[in-house]
Design a binder for these strands. Sequence first.
DNA 1: GTCTATAAAGGGATAGAC
DNA 2: GTCTATCCCTTTATAGAC
Lengths: 196, 196
Amino acid sequence: MGKNKQKTKAEILTITIPLFANEGYAGVSMRQIAKAVGIKAASLYHHFPDKQTLYIEALAQAFGKHADFMNEAFTLQATPEQRLRQLIHKLCILVTEDADFSRLMQREIMDGDEKRLKLLADQVFSDFFHDMNRLCRSFAPDRDPHLMTVSILGLVIYHYQIAPIRCFLPGFQASHNDPDIIGQHIFTLLKNEIEL
Amino acid sequence: MGKNKQKTKAEILTITIPLFANEGYAGVSMRQIAKAVGIKAASLYHHFPDKQTLYIEALAQAFGKHADFMNEAFTLQATPEQRLRQLIHKLCILVTEDADFSRLMQREIMDGDEKRLKLLADQVFSDFFHDMNRLCRSFAPDRDPHLMTVSILGLVIYHYQIAPIRCFLPGFQASHNDPDIIGQHIFTLLKNEIEL
DNA sequence: GTCTATAAAGGGATAGAC
DNA sequence: GTCTATCCCTTTATAGAC
């Protein structure tokens, strides 16, 4: 009844996502993808017209997975301080637990052309970013909300990005990879900004 | 007298660096490099035994270029506050003005194997990171210096990383790409940390 | 929906002339 | 030090059998 086709397509994408996340678009061949999926390369072209499309759909699946988180991170009614703490905590968990998502995002911001970036911004980040701006305004009304939002994202994301080399850098301790420790550090860093 | 060989080698690397920075290792072919340099692909193998070596030497040249900055950022005698402001300012200028350096670094942290990352950490960042830890201790003695150092780097670097998509995100203004504006924002964000 | 076979192009790398 | 020519392999993608 055609249900297998859809299922197989999503399965292919699920298997493909970590490959693109770890090796990049140019670093993964259709043969490698096919091998990982368990079919021959030619069969991939039954599901996707070309490699580009396969990549774009993998992106869409990887990013769509977290749409809920993006929208739910701001629902709870609480003080700005509590909401900021919650948000930082959830962001730390997100980047730590879905490395594929984070890496794909990083690569896409690096390599995506203008058209793809605009799509990513509008369809994935717009609402989330807007909510973050609003949160920033609520606890730091005198600050530029856009700059604050980027700063908070940078604080969380860079601690994750630098993880592969961090263990070789001066002052490293194992606890520095713990999302709770990192989240707590970032929250106290920003706490002074909060107007009580 | 063999002086041309050295000169040409450095010239090749200079031309190659932006290619690897923009397209990544797998995204650039020896033929593309040769074309950019203005010679044939086979001639590249007179200077470098293989593509890997060419890439590594390009990294070395791109990173070595900023060794002075890394070491000079902490020489001036001043209050911790002044030194922090100076450092943030110089970092903002660095990542803004040498996009190739920043992108290569980002790719290398993402894709480098353990051996290359250890080399990068020891030979490029060790002293700089150590100095940053010391600076952090001087203005925020109660904080973990490693976490503080990474946070400061993340604040600066992420504002640069997100630049390609930033203009599509809510609240963007042209001034958000100005290193002076970003630097000022980050400094005031950290200023509350400073023990006067 | 997957397979084999294959086309057409591009990849890294080498040999040997100049 | 650069060239042409070439080797051998991989790549993306298609055609057509099952």
